[in-house]
Every structure is written in C-alpha cells, then in structure tokens.
Design a protein around this nucleic acid. Structure first.
Lengths: 346, 346
DNA sequence: CTGAAAGCGCTTACAG
DNA sequence: CTGAAAGCGCTTACAG
C-alpha cells in the first residue's frame, strides 16, 4: 500500500503544503503542528516519492560517477571517497563502469540517464575532447584526471608530470643508473590518459640527470593492471642489460612486476628498486611494501563534488576550472629496503 | 533548453502517443512514421525524463546495491558483477556503502531511496533478521551472504560451512598439525555474518581429523581487512608453539598475515601454510600467490539480479528462496609451494 | 501560517 | 493505427 502526502495530511488534519514543509524541514510550522505531522508520517511510514519530487523540482539529488573499472583498487577507493563526499551534501551516487571504452564514456557524457541525475563525475580514458564538445550536454559535468584538461569543462587532477618526475628522481637518488618505466602506451602520442604525462615527467627527470631515454627500458603495456606489469617486467628482465630500478605508472603494474621479480629470485630493492603510483592499500601490505606516489584521493573527491555542486547551483557563468590536488612521494621497502621504514599499515 | 515528448511530436507531425511508442520500441508504428519520429528525436537530441516515466509507471529501472565497503576488493569485484548483470536487464545500479553498520543497513532496507529504486540487493553485516522483519518494506529485496539466511527474504550465498571445511581439509591434507583460524569474532555467537559459519566448517574439519580446537589458535579479529590479519598473525607467532598452517576467513586477512610472516622471515608454505577466502585478484599476484576459496561471484550476481527481477515482476506469491552458488578450492603457492603451480594470473 | 490548484513530463486507458 | 485527456505524487506560486 502506497502512502501519499495527502494521506499524511488527512491523518494529521493539515494541508499537504504543511506536510511538505515538515518533510522538507522548512520553518514557519508551529512546533505543535510539526509534531502532529511527524507522528502521522511515522504512523503511516510515509516515504516521499523521489520521482515526483524530482519531476517537480527538476533536481533528483542523484549524481553519477563513471569510472573505468570498479575492481581496480584506485577507482574503488576513489569511488568510496566520492560517495562519502556526496553523502555530505545529501546526494546519492549512481555508479557507472565504462571499461575505458570511448563509446560508453560518450554515452554516459551525453545524458545516458536522461534527467535522472543532476550531474556527472567522469573519469575518461578513451574519450577525446572534441567528441565531448560535440555532445555538449546541459548536464553539469566534472572530469577527473588529465585525459581532457584545459578544455571547456571543469576538471580536477594531480600534476602528473611533476609527480612522475619526482618519483623518477627518487629512484635516481638511490644511485640507480638504468631506470626503466612501465606504463608507456602505444597511443601515447594521441594524448590518451595519464600515460603521456607521466612519461614526460619520467623523461624530464632523466634529462635533468643527463641520462638519455633508452627505448628498451620503456616497454609498451596494453593496460594498467597487474597482468600488464608482469608482462612488461618479463620483457625488461629478458634484456641483455636489465634495469636496476623501475617506475611503474600504477601500483597494480608495480605489483605485477614485483611478482615476476620474486619468481625470478631477484631481490627488491637490492637488485631492482620499484616505485608505483596511486597508493592503493595493496601496496602497503605487499612484500616488500611498495613505494609509491600518493595522490590526495579525498581531495580529488571533495573538489569534484564541490565543483559539481557549484555547476548544479547554476554558476554557469564561471569559466571551466582546472583544479590541482596535492600528492606525496611515499618511500617504502621497494626502494628503501627492509628496516628502513616503520611498520606498514594504513 | 529542455526538450519534451510533445516537442518531438510537433516536429514529427504526430501525436505524443506515437512518439512514446517509438521511444519505447513498441510495435504498431508504420516504419515510415517511426523513421520520421526517430529523425525528430535525433534532431532535437531528445532524452526521456526518467523521473516522469518512473512517476507514471511506478518503476524507475534503478536498483540499489548496498555493500559494506567498496574499497574491499571482494565487494568491488562483486559490485562489478552486479552492475554487469543488471545492465543486461537494462537496469542501472545505485551503490550504497553501509560500512557494516546496523543502522545504515536498516536505513537502506527501509526504503532510504523512497521509490527511487525498484529493488535492493543488500549484503548485511550488522542487521538482525527481526529488525528486518519489523521494518518490512514493500521494496523487493534480495540478501547476499548468510548473515540472514532461511529468513523471510530471498537470499543467495555459498555454502560457507562446507567451503570452510574443505579449506581446512586442504591444510590438514598437507600434513599440518597445528592449524589456526583467523577470522573468529567476538560477536560470533550472535550469529553475525559469515564468521560463525566458516568457524563451524573449520571446527568440523578438525573434529573429523580427531583434533580438538585450541582456543589459542583462533584469535579474535575486529574486522576482515589486511590490518586485522596482520595483528592476528602477530598474536599467533607470539605463542610458545605457533601454528604450521592458517585458514584465514578472507583473502585480505591472509594478505595481512602473509606480510607479517615475511617480516619475521618465516617461509610460506614451508614454515606456515596459508589459505584465504574470496579469490580476490590481489591474491593471484602476491608472493607467494595465495591459495583460496573461490566463490562464484558472477553466479551470485546473476542470481541476485534474477531473483530481484522476479520479485519486481510481482511473483510475491513465491516463498522466499535460498540459493546456493558454487565455490572452488584454489590451491596456489601459499600451500603448495613454488613450482607446484602453473603461471599465476587472472 | 494554511488551503486549493496548477503543473513538472511522461504513459495509458479511452474514443475514434 | 492516432488523438485528446487523465493522472502518477510531489512542490510552489497564489490567495486568503
């Protein structure tokens, strides 16, 4: 049996307007009246129909978050942070998985959810900026990452070039001479995703140290998962002169690489030092624990939600903003060795 | 500018009914008419307003999935599977995180989303069956896991007792004598979550081998994350006579334990054999790779979505169903040792 | 402070 | 096969 606002009004002996005022926490309702209405709401177990409210108000209180894959820890952790930040605003989050596919990202960006959502936070991988402009929806949109930066849309990211540069510096600072990078992608020149930026930081660091990039030390990967890191590491170890350090463009890549090094009986960091990117929890508990670049995920989430809130509130006049959040180089055992670090853990 | 059905109708020179028919893929529309309507839809970039549709039809096409934590890989992987299974039915999934808190689970179960969702898949941790019955909502509900089984609600789970028994058998089969269990919880007697079931399986296996349970070998944990496994392992290693094998009630617990064993310089599996539960991707790439119990996550997701679909379709007459999905013991290096297993990987 | 009424954008009987 | 109209359950000007 469905309970309507008017049922509550009838029971409480007031108008629907008054019930609506109480349900929405408005002022100008006598405490006595408010109490009577609340009692009726409780008695009847009334729940407002959000579709009706949304239809009337033009806002649903639901935002969508579209990430490549929920089962990649970085995105799982980011999703958690976004859901929490959204909850603080009373928003509900609807999660979409794009698998990094251009068409799915485009679908999502072009209003897949038809007015069901008030706004969208999208972490694009395959989408190009011109496609985004062509599909220009009126749904407020915030982009994550640097796939499409400086474009016509709000976006928040870490400074990937600088973070990658410092990560590589960290390896060079250990005295390593052959520093490889795992994460180069075939489509790198097409400015896809973070790869070209982290690549630039890596190369910049080497250049500053007077080292020329050795193409052999930058194998191509198909993706950023453990399996890709494992394959790339195998390639590197097959070289006549393997690297003595590796900067992996994601922690998952690094964990895959770590696994292969262990299989080969190589010591980390003594034989090969390793640093990743993302600071996922897995890396804190691996053996050895994984040095990494830690982006401020909570800040990313908070900024994304705040910016979306501003857009939804109608600050359309404001030009698109590019927000940078902080990051930190977190040295752990995979570069410093055992005993150099404190107890692991979150 | 918002485009309405009537705008499309006007442009195409037909009635709204016809546009509605086309938009919903109904029959009985002349191909020629359909084409003209479709052209108008494309021209105007029309998107149906889902709130209006939902208000009218009483169904939104959105279901909610409530899990304890998205950043726990098991739930992240399960969420992915549910989103995919739901997509096959044209459903969108709204994700809630409960943190395993009773009150949040209750909120969610008692229609938090007020008619926004057509149904709910809930993985309860703290919620008790009587609370669930009291709050008896009309929103179709399917429960995951065995926290509340055999109750008044559809639910799908693996046979945790049997799975735990076989996992323990696997350790005993290696000739281990002091087999510990990490995952006992203080509230175990209160029948909370999977702990008591896996505990029963563990004890049943020992009993069959003529071994009495040693309370020292079953330390309490506060949660099922890596940090909890690390703490419990430390407790076990501090014993005068530490275990030579450990059954961990989750892979995360096992990964935490593995980390501590490595820190202490103990060999796995030579000194201590280890098996987990969940088959998360992390365990396939750890060193050593982690033996585990692999529940059929895709089956769980598919059954949950199918059962929810049946309830939404109004098969209320059908009594609550308890569905069991399969599982598999997956031996890897943490019990079999190096070289005993094939190449790791997904 | 409260009541009666319009309207958000759909879908769907009901006529034709 | 198509058109005109009612109504889903809210919120919100508009009167009082």
């Amino acid at each position: 049996m469905v309970v309507r606002l008017s049922d509550v009004a009838a029971r409480a002996g007031v108008s629907v307007k008054t019930v609506s005022n109480v349900a929405n926490g408005y002022l100008h309702v006598k405490p006595e009246t408010r109490e009577r209405v609340q009692a009726a709401i409780d008695d009847l177990n009334y729940r407002p129909n959000l579709s009706a409210r949304s239809l009337r108000q033009g806002r649903s209180g639901v935002i969508a978050l579209a990430v490549p894959a929920l089962d990649m820890p970085y995105f799982a952790e980011l999703t958690r942070a976004v859901v929490e930040a959204a909850a603080e605003r009373g928003w509900t989050v609807l999660v979409d998985q794009t698998d990094g596919l251009r068409e799915r990202e485009l679908e999502v960006a072009s209003g897949l959810r038809g007015h069901l959502i008030d706004g969208l936070i999208l972490s694009p991988v395959g989408l190009e900026v011109d496609e985004l402009e062509r599909s220009k929806e009126d749904t407020p949109l915030v982009l994550l990452g640097e796939k499409i930066a400086g474009g016509p849309v709000d976006h928040v990211a870490v400074d990937n070039v600088e973070a990658a540069r410092l990560a590589t510096d960290h390896l060079l600072g250990l005295g390593r001479k052959r520093v490889a990078a795992i994460g180069y992608q075939a489509r790198a020149d097409a400015a896809s995703g973070v790869a070209p930026l982290r690549r630039r930081g890596y190369e910049r660091s080497l250049a500053a140290a007077g080292i020329t990039v050795d193409a052999e030390l930058t194998p191509q990967v198909a993706g950023y998962r453990r399996v890709d890191g494992a394959h790339a590491m195998e390639t590197l170890l097959a070289l006549p002169e393997p690297p003595d350090a590796v900067f992996c463009f994601s922690d998952l890549l690094a964990l895959g690489a770590l696994r292969v090094l262990a299989e080969r009986g190589l010591r980390v960091p003594e034989d090969v030092a390793l640093i990743g990117f993302d600071d996922i929890e897995d890396g804190r508990y691996s053996t050895p624990s994984l040095s990494t670049v830690a982006p401020a995920k909570d800040e990313i989430a908070r900024h994304a939600v705040d910016m979306l809130h501003d857009r939804i509130a109608g600050r359309d006049a404001v030009p698109a903003r590019d927000v940078r959040v902080g990051f930190e180089i977190v040295p752990r055992e995979s570069t410093l060795g055992r005993g150099q670090t404190g107890p692991s853990g979150p």
